[in-house]
Each structure stands twice: as C-alpha cells, then as structure tokens.
Write a protein that binds this DNA or RNA. Structure first.
Lengths: 204, 204, 204, 204
DNA sequence: CATGAATGAGCTTTCATTCAT
DNA sequence: AATGAATGAAAGCTCATTCAT
C-alpha cells in the first residue's frame, strides 16, 4: 500500500496523485487506505519516512566498517548510488517531491540528509587523522572546511543520482559514479590537508 | 505580477498556489492576471523564463572575461551563489518546482542548465590547456572526463545553493561557497591531469 | 450595431455570444455598446424588436390589398418566406433564440406572432364570406375552427422557414413554398366550408 | 436526476441552468451528478436521448396498426399531442433547447425527427394507394410532393405542440389538435390526388 | 464622445474525506 | 474488516459591467 503511494507520488506529484489512483494502484478500496493511514498527508509522510529509512539503511549496510576512511566513503557512495538506481521512485520521492511541498515533509528529508552529511563529515575527519599520522607537514582542517567538503560531496552525489534516474539507461554504474566522485572529492581533501587548497589569492 | 507568481509558486508549489493567492499577493484581481498571462500554465512558464534569464544574465555578468580559467570559473560561481542567495524564491522555482511538474517546464530549465554546463565545460577544457603549457607530463583528458567533472561541479553548486536558500541565515557567503567548490573540483582536475586519480583498486 | 447583435446572437446563442464579440463585430468598443444599449438584456430585446418589426413590415408590404383573400394570403406567405430567406439570422433570432431564453424575450415574439395569426384569421374569415356568396350550401365556421386553421398554417409556415434556413441552398423558392402551403391549407378550408372536413367518425 | 436536468434545461436553457440548480432540484449534491453523468454536456445529451426515446415510444404506442392510413395518422398525432402536453418540459427540451446549442445535440433530435417524418411519409403513400383503389381518375404523387406534405404536417404539429405547452391551459385537447391537423393536411392530400391543387396563376 | 484597464460574481469540475452497510 | 455511495470545499477560468482618462 505504501508502495502504491511511493509510486504514485513520485510519478505524478503529491497533488496530482489522487487517493483514488493510489487505492486502485494498491488494489484496495479507498476507505481502507484511510483506515490504515489517516489522511493523504499522513500517507505522504509515511512514504517519505519509509523511503528515507530504506535509503539510510542501505547506505549503512554498504559501508565497509574497519576499512580506511576513503574506502568507507567509497563503499557508502556505491551503496547510495546502487540503492537510488534500484529505487528510482523512492529517490524521486525524497529528493524531488518531498522538497516541493512545504515544511513538514521537507524537514523530514532534511533530517535524513543531516544524518548522512554528519556521517560523511566524520569520515573526512577520520581521513584527516589518518593523513596526519602518515604525512609530516599536514595541517589541521577547520570544522567549516570539513563540513563544506561534506556538503559539496553529498550535493554532488545527489546530483549524480538525479541524473542517473533520468531514465536514460546505460549511464555509469553505481561503482563508477562513486569512483568519479571520489576522484574529485578525495583529491580536494588531500590538497587541503597539504595546504595546497585553491584560493582566490589574486583578489585584493 | 510575475513577482507574486514566483513567490507563490516557489513557496507553495505549482498546484498549491491558487490563482486567488497570486492575484491577492500581486494586489490585483484574478481576471487581470488572466488578462495578461492567459492561464496558470502560462503564468508558470513566464515565471520560469524570467528567473532563468535573470540567473543566466547574472552569472554571465559576474564572469571575469580575459582572466585565467580558474579565476573565470570562480567568479562565475560567486555570481551564481550571490544571485541565488539574493533571489531564493527564483532559485527554488527553477531548481525545485520547475522540475517537479512535467515536461514543458522541466525542459525549460534543462535548456538553461545545459547552457551553464557547457560554459563550465569550456572553462575546464581551457584550464587543461593552460596546465598543459606549464606542467611537463600532463595528460590529455577524455571528453567524458571533462564533462563528468562539469556535471559534478554544477550539481554540487546547485546543492550548495539549495542549502543557502533554506532560510537559515548565517550560512557561508557566496564567495566562500565558491571557494569551497573550487577546492572540491579544481584539485580533482589537477590530479586527473597529472594521472593521479583515485581508484578503489589501490585499496585492499 | 444591432446588426452585430443579431448576427452574434443568432449564430452563437444569447449566452455564448459575448459582449466582446459583439463589440468587435460591430467595429466599436465595448463601453460604446453599453452607452447606446444599456445591458446585454436590453441589447437582446432591441435586436428582437427590430427583427420582429422588420418581419411584420415585410409581410404587410407583401400583401396585395384589395385582392381576393386567397391571393392576399398567398402574397403574404410569399413575403414571409422571402424575408426569412433573406434575413436568416433575424429569423433564427426570432424563432429559435428568443424562445430559448425565458419570459421577457419569448413574450416579445409571442406578441408578433399573435399579430400575424390574427391577420391570417381575418383573411380566412374573409374567404369564408366570399365563399358564402358564391357557394350555396356553405356552412358557417366556428371561431375555434378558423383560429385552429390559422395557427396550423402559421406553424407550418414557420417550420418551412426553418427548413429553408438550414443552410442547404437550392431549396424551394419563397413563392414555391407559399404555393405548397396554400395547396394544403386552402383545400382544407374549402372542404371545411363544404362540410366535408375530416373527422374521426369511426370512434365511438 | 434526469428529471431535474430536463426540467432545468427546458425552463432555463442549457447555459443558464447551472449544475448547482440541477443538483438542488434533484435533491442531491453536485458531485453526485458528476459521478453518474460525467459532465454538463453528457447530462444534456442523456436528457435529450431519454425524452426523444420517450416521445417516439409514445407515438408508436398510440398508432393503431392495421387501421386505414388516415386513422393511423390521426391516432399517431393524438398520441404525439397527448405526450407533449403531458411532458411539456421534455417537449421544450427537444424542440427548443436541443436545437439551439450546436451540432451534437441538434443531430440527436434531427435523427428522431427524420424517423417520424419517414413514418408519416409512408402513411401518406399508403393513403394515396388506398385512394387510387377507390377513385377513378386519381393521379400519382411525386416523391417530393409526398415528402413536402409530410414535412409540412410534422412542422405544423410541432408548432401546435409548442402552443399547447405555452402554459395557458384550456387550449385544444390532444384529439382536437389532431383533428384540426387532419383537416388541414388530409384535404390537401385529397385535392392533390385529384389534380385540384391550388396555384397562384388561377387568380387574376 | 470614446476607450483601455480592471473587477465582482458565477460556473464547471475535481478531490480528500466520511458514513451506512 | 471492507466498501459503495455521497459530499463540502475549493480551484481554474470567463464575462457582463464599470471607471478614469
């Protein structure tokens, strides 16, 4: 029944998907939907929560604990791309629809996002510590720098996931996408740690 | 009058924003809205077009022509973040709402996005050429690599712009966001050019 | 200006014809229409009155006074068919549109119709008197009989006029239509006068 | 529910009768009307079809098969007048409203009318054959003459029915109206068959 | 005298939501 | 537990009508 909701909401949008459609898609009668999920808003919330939980769970399960930080990040990204590719409706629901319809829903996915960003932040911090052990003149990163990188990384990942779900099959595989992203992000991190970050020095 | 449309659509979504609301917000009567913009769909299209044009214009104006490629990219990003921060409703309209409601609108912003991605692609290619002049053992980038980088960069920028418009003031300034992104992407470009990309195989 | 009204009302119907259409058709601005004819209802009424007057005038002018009654009737019918064929919009306005939209307008054309029916009634009565002078055993007609014939005659004439205006050119000419009608009506009158009317005698 | 539609449409006209009015008249809520009859147009069509079928059925039932042709015609006319007098709204719907509002509806009643005209045509032809058996020097009628007579007869009948439905009680009864019409038309037929038609040339 | 600009009111249609069964 | 039947409320759109110029 939630399946029907996710699918309908993802494909038609919250307003366009009617409760009739959803009930029919689920193969049950409309009042039954109301019995289990009190209202359209509640149904939408329930769908979002389920998809958010599924996504977080998938990413968590994909992460190779006890591996080096970069490897953990890479495996997490792989898991993320694999899950969004396998559940395009769920991803659309979270990343497109939930954001489109005001506060209660947007907050719901914002919470999930924060969770992921924090996880990435910790990985980056761990990587920085690892790096510090190995390299001599490593500098310490400010919190905002780490957080900035994490946000950018997550943002780029979301973008790639959107692009993959655009319907054109034959795009990059989940692991390829993850590798592409690591190429950019990890290099940036390394440079930053060695004091070779990019800066608009030429400005007054 | 378009202002009212942009604001209402951005905040309530296309379906939820009623023509009554928009008319009231614009301080005019509903029939007047229909007199100037023939239908709700036309109004939506007009809003999207205006905001897309404004954004592209702003970015174009911000780019420092004749500067080195990285500097051009940075100034363009700064302009982008400055504009989206100053016009959060316009940005939401383009990036969230227009994508949510079917083909005609999505195509409109897809065109704008393509324009920007191509611009970034050219900058990256130019940077690669500059780099080739300076560094000895620079390798040539494949077209897909450049394009991949451009997409990731634009995607990350969009994400950061979203975050900035979330309403929580005190986020990073436009220039800081641009610098973060440069750090994220430019280093990746450099590493790629020197054949030092990240790859999962290196790890256990 | 009334021309435009007649045409628009006849072709689109009272509700479908908008004041915008009419003003544009008349080549003037809408407020001007309101200046001369206070409202849409007044405009409609004015159109009906004009067309009714024109029709009655045309029929009156066509009647050959001082001729025998049958000849008068025939010439009147000819005039009627000629006028309705030449002014199909006017005829539609009177016979279709005015009847469709409630009391005030329906009454207007009912008055005109009454006038015509009375005229026909008098002609029939005159014919009866003429007949009485010529034929020996003529019987006197009851008022209801005369009136019934007049009504039927006028009704049949209206029907033929409708059929003629249906757009298929090449129908019978006005004079032919009038002759056809005379064939039926006058014979019926003659038979009645000679006591050879049709009656359901066989019923109990 | 169709009753309400017929009544509202007949009295107010298609455009003037609002779905609110109809729903209220039917004692149900507006959405229910839309549930059963999909749109105003469909409701109108359904009303027309029902009334047309009812009228045709009533006329068919009234005709005394196996009686002589004139008797059949008379009984059919009686049935027609009786039905229209008993269902004035239905008659108005068919004869006034359906004709006023464009092709799909007009066609619907045109079909019914054709059916009736053809029935009358056959009766007249049968009468001519009967007449030929009895009278010696009967001439054969051309098809156009028969058809013209049928059209005129039906047209006159329609007109008389309109008059009866005008609301003024005390008009002629159904049988009287039928007799009047028979007098009007049957005599014409007889004269025609005997070559004694009326023609303008006979006069001065 | 004539009009461009503006609106109040109403119409058709849809949909989330609820009872009686 | 499950549903067919019904509705209140609202939305997009149109049009007769009026001022300020």
């Amino acid at each position: 029944m939630l399946d029907a909701g996710v699918r309908a909401f993802a494909r038609s949008g919250y307003r366009n998907a009617s409760m009739d459609d959803i009930a029919e898609l689920a193969g049950v009668s409309k009042p039954l939907v109301y019995l289990y999920l009190n209202s359209k808003e509640d149904l939408f919330t329930a769908c979002i929560r389920r998809e958010a939980a599924a996504l977080v769970t998938a990413v968590r399960a994909a992460v190779e604990r006890d591996a080096p930080a970069d490897r953990q990040l890479w495996s997490g990204l792989s898991g993320f791309f694999a899950h969004t590719a396998e559940h395009p409706d769920g991803w659309t629901l979270l990343h497109v629809q939930a954001r489109t319809h005001g506060q209660p829903y947007a907050r719901e996915v914002a919470a999930m996002r924060t969770e992921i960003v924090e996880f990435v932040t910790q990985l980056i911090a761990a990587a920085a510590r690892e790096h510090a052990r190995e390299a001599a003149r490593a500098r310490t990163l400010a919190g905002t720098e780490v957080s900035g990188l994490a946000h950018a990384l997550v943002g780029a990942a979301e973008s790639l996931a959107d692009r993959a779900g655009d319907g054109r099959a034959g795009g990059p595989s989940a692991k390829e996408a993850a590798a592409t992203l690591m190429n950019f992000a990890w290099a940036g991190l390394g440079n930053l740690l060695q004091g070779r970050g990019w800066a608009p020095e030429r400005i007054g």
